[in-house]
Amino acid sequence: MFPILVLFAFFTLLSACSNQPLSHQSNAESVAVGDDRDVKGCIRSAGYSWCEYTAQCERPWELAKEQGFALENEGFANFCAEAN
């Protein structure tokens, strides 16, 4: 009885490791991680947002620490305004 349970558990775990996609997944769910760039090319899921002032994708918390402004949406928006 014990070997049968061990074999059952083994094959259950083995089937869970199958690399075939589940039939209920949509195409949106199968997008690669980091493949969610905005119109400027910033990867939103990695925390990047476009900054007009630096003309590049920035992580707000890193830029706030580097430039010394308050870490909040308004601080980032004010710093990155085109006419800074």
Rank of each mutant, 00 (worst) to 15 (best):
W50V: 09
V31W: 08
L14C: 03
C17S: 04
E66N: 10
F2T: 11
N84C: 03
A9I: 08
D36Q: 12
P60L: 07
V33I: 14
C51A: 11
S18A: 03
P3E: 03
Y48A: 14
L63F: 06
R37V: 13
N78W: 05
Q56A: 08
R44T: 14
W61Q: 11
I43F: 08
A28D: 15
R37S: 11
R59T: 13
S49F: 15
I43N: 06
S15G: 04
E52N: 10
A81W: 09
R44Q: 14
A9E: 00
F79H: 14
S49T: 05
N73H: 12
F76H: 08
E66R: 15
L22W: 02
E74S: 06
F79E: 08
E52W: 06
K65E: 12
N73T: 11
Q25R: 15
K65Y: 03
F11V: 06
E58A: 10
A64I: 07
A77G: 01
H24L: 13
N27Q: 14
C17M: 11
N78Y: 00
W61V: 10
E62M: 03
H24V: 15
K40L: 03
G34N: 14
V31H: 07
L5S: 04
A46C: 00
D36W: 15
F76T: 13
E74Q: 06
L63R: 05
V6M: 01
A46V: 03
G41M: 05
P3S: 06
Q25V: 10
D36C: 12
S15R: 06
A77F: 08
L71M: 09
G75W: 01
T54H: 05
C17I: 05
Q20F: 05
V33C: 03
C51L: 11
L14T: 01
R37D: 07
G75Q: 04
N19T: 12
F8G: 02
A83G: 08
I43L: 09
F10Y: 10
A70K: 13
A9F: 04
C80L: 05
G75R: 05
A81E: 09
E82Q: 10
A16M: 08
A83M: 05
E62C: 02
E62Y: 07
D38G: 09
E72C: 13
V39N: 15
L7H: 05
A55Y: 09
N84K: 14
